[in-house]
Design a protein around this nucleic acid. Sequence first.
DNA 1: CCAGTCGTAGAACAGTGTTCGTCACAACAA
DNA 2: TTGTTGTGACGAACACTGTTCTACGACTGG
Lengths: 229, 229
Amino acid sequence: MTSWPETWPGREKPAPRRQPLSRERIVATALAIIETEGLDALSMRRVAQELGTGAASLYAHISNKDELLEQVLDLVYSEITIETPDPARWQEQVKDHMRRARKVLISHGDLARAAMAANVPVTPHALDSAEAVLGLLKAGGLDDRTASYGVDVLSLLVTATAFEESSRWQVSAEDASAYGERIRAFFEAVPADRYPLVVSLAGELTRDVGDERFEFGLDILVAGLARRV
Amino acid sequence: MTSWPETWPGREKPAPRRQPLSRERIVATALAIIETEGLDALSMRRVAQELGTGAASLYAHISNKDELLEQVLDLVYSEITIETPDPARWQEQVKDHMRRARKVLISHGDLARAAMAANVPVTPHALDSAEAVLGLLKAGGLDDRTASYGVDVLSLLVTATAFEESSRWQVSAEDASAYGERIRAFFEAVPADRYPLVVSLAGELTRDVGDERFEFGLDILVAGLARRV
DNA sequence: CCAGTCGTAGAACAGTGTTCGTCACAACAA
DNA sequence: TTGTTGTGACGAACACTGTTCTACGACTGG
C-alpha cells in the first residue's frame, strides 16, 4: 500500500523565515535602489518592498528617512581609504584623499544629491574622513584654525561638485552628453547684448571634462593652504 | 408708501474680483512663505491658500514646483548689484560680488537649500551674475578657460556655504547657537583614540564666526585665480 | 502555563505634486 | 444678438509620500 505523503498541499509548513530585518540590510537595500533607480526613487515603501516587508517595519530599526540617508552615506564613506600622513608629500596626499572621496560619492548613482544635507560629519566614516584630512593638514604644518577651515572648504568642494554632477545623473552617459549640449545651445542662444561673455564662452562654460573642473578648484585650494604654513 | 430697497439680499453684485493670478504674484508669495515659515513649509497648496485660490490654479502660470523655486531664486538674484569692471581692482570686485551674492541668498530664510539644485544659471538674473563675474575675471586678464572654471568654483563656494548655513536655519538665532553647541559637544564626545584631532579641534571646527569661513575660501580662490594671469 | 517583550506589518493618518474635467467669462465672428 | 472658441480658475481625483497606531505572533523567563 502506498504510504501517504508527508504533507498535503495546503498544509505545508510555512516557507523558512526570511532573514530578519536589520539596520544593515535596510541601509544596503536603500543604497542598491539608489544605484539602480536613482535617489528620487528611494522611498520607505520601496525599500520595504525590496525586503519583502511593510514600510512600518523599517521604523523598528531606523528612526526616519533622514537617518536612512545618513547611514547610506556612511556606508559609502567607508569605502574611502585612509593614508598615513607623510609630511614630505602632504599636499598630494590631501588631493588624493579628496579625489577618493569624490570618486566614492559619484560612483553610487546620484546619491551625492543627498550629501550636501549631511555635510557635518556625525557618522563614523564621515568622521574618519574628516580626521584623516585634519591629520594631513596638521602634518603639513597648518595651525589649528587653518586646518579646521581647510577641512571645511575641501569637503565642501567635494560634495558640491559631486552634487552638481549627480544632478545631471542619468541612466546612460548619452543622456548626460545630450544634457550638456542642451545647456551649451541655451547659452549660445541667450541675448548677446545682455550676456556677451556667456554667449562667447558657451563652449568653455559647458565643456564636459570630467574631473578637470574639480581638479582646478582642488589645485587652487591646496596650493592656497600650503601658502599659509 | 415706503420705497423698495435698491437690491434684495442675495441679489447683490458679486464682490469685485480679487487681483488676478500672475506668475509674479505667485513667485513673490512663495518667497514670502519661505522667509516666514521656511523652505519645507512651501507647497503648492500653501501658496494657493495664501493667494485665496486652489493649487491647480497655479499651473496656468507655472509649470511645476521646480520652476517655481527657480523663479523664486531668480527674484532674489535680481537683488545682486552689478559693478563695472575695473582692471585695477578686479580681485576686490570679484570678492565683493560673491559677498553680495551670498548675502542675498542667506537673507531669505533657508532658500539657499534650493540653490544647489539650480546652480546652472538659466534664469535672467542668474545669468546676469555669471556674466558680471566673467566680466571681472576677464578684466583681470584670465584666459577663457580659467575664467570659465573660476566662475564655476566661485559660485559653488557661494551656494554651498549658503546651503550649509541655511541647513541650520531656525526662527531664532538662539536655536542656531544651541545647534552649534550641540555639534561641538558631539565632537568633544567622540572616541578620542579614533578621532584625536576632531576631539582636540572641536572648538575650532564648530566656531561660529559668521562669514569668516566663507571669506577664508574666497581669499584662497581669488588669490589662486590671480596667480593664473 | 502565562505574562511580558519584541519585531512585524496592515491600516490609517495627514500630507504632497500634478492632472482631469467642468465652469464662468471674455473675445470674436456671423 | 447669438453661437463659438479660448482661457483662467479651481474642486475633485489620482498616485504617491513619511510616519504613527494598533493588533498579532513568536519567543523568553519565571
